[in-house]
Amino acid sequence: MIKEVSIEQAGLEIMRRAAIDIPEDFRDGVKAMMPQETNELSQFVLKSMVENWEAAEDDRRPMCADTGLPRYFVKVGNEASVEGGFIALERALRRATATATHEVPLRPNRVHPLTRADNNNNVGIGAPEIDYSFEPNADWIDIVTVHKGGLFGSDFRMLFPGDGIDGIKRFFLDVMIQFGRRGLACQPAIVGVGIGGSKDVCMTLGKQAACLRIVGNQNPDPQIAALERELKDLGNNIGMGPMGFVGSSMVVDCNIEVGCTHTGGMPVSVHSFCLSSRRAVARLHASGEIEYRTDPAWFTDYMRREGIE
């Protein structure tokens, strides 16, 4: 039985870690781009970002003041049981969000969309979002938090089967260029691409590909993995770098996720995470043990299953 108090404790801890500690895979990915970057201004930006991550870790302060829209992704083992059920889990995560906002501190970004009223704790209608997935043969739950800014760097387009890979490339370039100018997308970033599904699922796939997969991993389908590499290279050959300066550092990695879609359509979404790719994960075991890590391991074989069973 996983205790409510453990969920709240883990929720708070991952909020703190996400805000302060840059995931190693992302830091290594950016450092690997630095030797290729030849433009002086772009080099300066990358160097400053690395220094900033070090400052955040040394001082235990958030790496970016726009602490995004803090939210959770929960993967539930099929054999896991939660004290008080999932209503208790959601209450615990809402409490953890409010506490983290005050203690880390996070910026209270969440406001009512029309009145703009701010509860000053990142909690409100539909906030934080809590999304779920399931995993067979497991008695743990994984709680992932992602802090992602929300204004720039994402777009959706309904393409059609005849548009083919060319259509995907054009749209990908369009998004990179329009939001890359002046660095509105805070690039270089992990870029997630969702292809297929219903429109809303297409957005979700791309968003999760950006936020819940790490630098260096590949889609298990070799054809999709090849497209990931191709889009990454395309993005890094635009001639644009960080802040929209001349350069070559746009895409730290490209992650693609697909879902079966309407026979007449090929919806595509593109999402840039940012230079502060903030995510943290806690695994809560039935024994009460809590393990922390930075790889969400969200897209499992079960998530990508194709058959009926």
């Binding site: 201004l41 387009r157 309904m158 393409l159 059609f160 005849g162 548009d163 083919g164 060319d166 259509g167 490339k169 054009r170 749209f171 370039l173 260029i177 100018r181 002046r182 395309l234 050959n237 635009i238 001639g239 644009m240 802040m243 929209g244 300066f245 001349v246």
Partner: peptide, 25 residues
């Protein structure tokens, strides 16, 4: 600075799209 960077970036854009056919819609 951004204006100048944008001008330079623009010079390379056309060739990026070369050979990629336009979407139907």
């Amino acid at each position: 600075l951004f204006h100048n960077a944008g001008q330079t970036v623009n010079e390379g854009l056309d060739k990026l799209y070369d050979g990629l056919k336009k979407p139907a819609l």
